[in-house]
């Protein structure tokens, strides 16, 4: 049985301007010890998907439906008390915005100790020792001295490391990392990713990692979910996704990467603007920006279906598979050629 199974998750926000459908029918599952990468347009609902699973959306203007089954329990309907016991202990989350995710009026140490003591009945001294251990593990220099500092005395990257330490402090079974290394330099990023991998090997934890860095996805994820306009457009193993991408949006993503080995004056960008979730386009949400658009795309929502060759490779596009294989091959070839 999967550790976490998400079925047809939907979340919408009621705003002054109308209803924003931020997540619209997302399904996936995560196994023990597995890493799922989520990539996609900013504003496509990646963070909201994870926040919904954790039950962290503001109650007031949010409605969610669907299921998120965690060890047999639907997280969307569990009682707040039970949910609290799961949060921060079984499932923990690293947030996207390290600068604002720490409380400015408490010291780093106090916030870490709180995280320990909420789930373990230990003394301050033990909790502090554990906090120090984690701060060192994430590479905060002179942790003993800095543990009593306030967040504003830390740089963005250091705050993110503190967030990571806080998320790992109770050895969670599932770690949801929302762009954990965006604020970090590449060498620290490598350290943190190694740390997460070690956690996974030691405790068999599962990881959901949201990132914009396709390099990070390629190197850490087992499976990848590509989101566009609040929906999943492609879901495949990492090799499949990079070797035979099946959705024009995925092609756009791969194509627009600046790379160390290629020189271009302008990057390839996907034409047009990201879709408004207030009034999403009819049919396939990518169609106004897609260069392969057909009549059917404008009216009918493409279903997320397996490809013929690979039943685990799901994609939502009306194009026929032959064309897609051909176009994908062309894209990858052109990138290789430029590189060569």
């Amino acid at each position: 049985m999967a550790l976490l199974e998400v079925k047809d998750l939907r979340t919408s926000f009621h705003t002054e301007d109308g209803i924003v459908g931020a997540v619209d029918g997302v399904s996936f599952s995560v196994e023990k010890g597995q890493t799922l990468g989520i990539v996609g347009e900013s504003g496509s609902g990646k963070s909201v998907t994870c926040l919904t699973i954790m039950g962290l959306n503001a109650k007031r203007n949010t409605t969610s439906s669907g299921e998120a089954i965690w060890k047999g329990k639907n997280l969307l309907t569990t009682k707040p008390r039970e949910l609290r016991e799961i949060r921060g202990n079984d499932i923990s989350m690293i947030f996207q915005d390290p600068m604002t995710s720490l409380n400015p009026v408490h010291t780093i140490g106090k916030q870490l100790i709180e995280a320990v003591q909420l789930h373990r009945d230990v003394s301050n001294r033990v909790a502090r020792a554990r906090s120090l251990e984690l701060l060192k593990a994430v590479g905060i220099p002179y942790a003993e001295r800095r543990i009593d500092d306030y967040p504003h005395q830390f740089s963005g990257g250091m705050r993110q490391r503190v967030m990571i330490a806080m998320a790992l402090i109770n050895d969670p079974d599932l770690l949801i990392a929302d762009e954990p290394t965006t604020a970090l330099d590449v060498t620290t990023q490598a350290q943190i990713l190694t740390l997460m991998k070690r956690l996974q090997e030691e405790f068999g934890s599962a990881i959901i990692i949201i990132t914009h860095d396709l390099g990070v996805v390629a190197e850490t994820a087992d499976d990848v979910l590509v989101m566009y306009g609040a929906r999943v457009v492609e879901h495949a193993s990492v090799e499949e996704l990079f070797n035979r991408p099946q959705h024009p949006y995925t092609w756009g993503l791969i194509g627009s990467l600046p790379r160390l080995d290629i020189d271009v004056e302008r990057l390839i960008q996907i034409p047009g603007q990201p879709p408004s979730l207030l009034r999403p386009p009819r049919g396939c949400r990518f169609h106004p920006r897609c260069s392969y658009v057909m009549e059917v795309c404008k009216t009918t929502v493409p279903e997320l279906l397996p490809t013929q060759r690979e039943p685990d490779h799901l994609q939502a596009c009306h194009l026929d598979e032959e064309t897609k294989d051909r176009e994908a091959a062309k894209l990858l070839e052109s990138m290789m050629a430029e590189a060569g």
């Binding site: 990539v39 347009e41 996207q96 965006t182 914009h212 396709l214 990057l267 996907i270």
Partner: peptide, 14 residues
């Protein structure tokens, strides 16, 4: 552009 997805990143860089 750290917080942007690659296609928006491409837009901003361009």
């Amino acid at each position: 552009v750290s917080a942007l997805d690659v296609s928006v990143q491409a837009q901003i860089l361009n």
